Simulated assay, not measured.
Amino acid sequence: MLLLWMLLAAGFGLAAGVLLPRAVYRFSVGPEEPWRDRCPAGHPLPGPAGGWLGRAYCAGCPGPYGPRARWFAVAGAVVCGTLAAVVGPRPELAVWLVAVPAGLVLAAVDRAVNRLPDVLTLPLAGGVTALLGVAALLPGAEGSWPRAVLGGVVLAGVFGVLFLIQPNGMGFGDVKLALALGVALGWYGWGVLLVGAFLGFALCAVYGTVLVLRGRADGGTALAFGPFLVLGALAGVLLGGMWV
């Protein structure tokens, strides 16, 4: 039965990943720029959800543009399959699976343009909070919804203080993303919240150190924090799923 859950979850992640590159391409613009609605050659973007979902490919152009779908498909399948293997058929698994595509898009966009769009971070926080509230009412759930909500407030508050202290070291988008990740991590406990947040900082620090040692960055280089926050939260949720 667990193998079936893993295969179903991996299939969902694979299918979702194939549809994400178009959204990443459209969101990967500067703070003052409108979302892209055309390919690099100027052709309109047709497709599902008003052209937001699909491969970064245009029939009128010689080849694909933007990120490759295969990387998102592989990442989605691996992450969703791993979540299913660790969490099992508990109600909160559905919440984690739904959150994976948004996390992949946010990580990719932040890596591309150092931006975490509000139209993704805020609905993600609201969606995770609401869905976990539903999961908490179902039999078999292994978490606390009140603690999850408080965890989101606490982590976002901590990040907000860090942003006020050093706005050049952390963007306000990271604060909004921390709200959703804090809810997810807080579901399994305060220890999980601390571990997930710490891993996000640690992974970013290791990556920055490697770049400096290779001469590709210095102390003033701005790094996208979002991908490491997402990775840290994923690791925390996996650990929480194993501990409960």
Rank of each mutant, 00 (worst) to 15 (best):
G157D: 10
G47W: 01
V154I: 14
F163S: 15
G81I: 11
Y207E: 14
L131F: 11
C61Q: 10
L199S: 02
A156V: 06
A99V: 13
A75P: 05
F159Q: 04
G189D: 01
F163I: 10
E92V: 13
M170F: 08
S144A: 04
G126K: 03
V78Y: 04
V105Y: 06
V113L: 13
L97S: 14
V183Y: 01
L238W: 10
L116G: 08
G88W: 08
L238I: 09
G63Y: 00
G169H: 12
P167Q: 08
A9S: 14
A41S: 14
A235C: 13
A222W: 09
A56E: 03
G219M: 05
H43N: 13
P62T: 01
G152E: 04
P40F: 09
G88Q: 11
Y188E: 00
L53P: 05
V95P: 07
E142S: 09
G66S: 00
L229P: 12
V86T: 15
V109R: 14
L155A: 06
L53S: 07
G219Q: 12
L7R: 02
A202Q: 12
W52S: 09
V175P: 09
R55M: 03
L2W: 11
R26M: 03
D118C: 08
A184E: 07
D110I: 03
G143W: 00
V161R: 12
L2P: 05
A178N: 03
V87E: 08
A156R: 03
S28C: 06
P46G: 07
F225T: 14
W187A: 01
L7D: 10
G189N: 00
A9H: 04
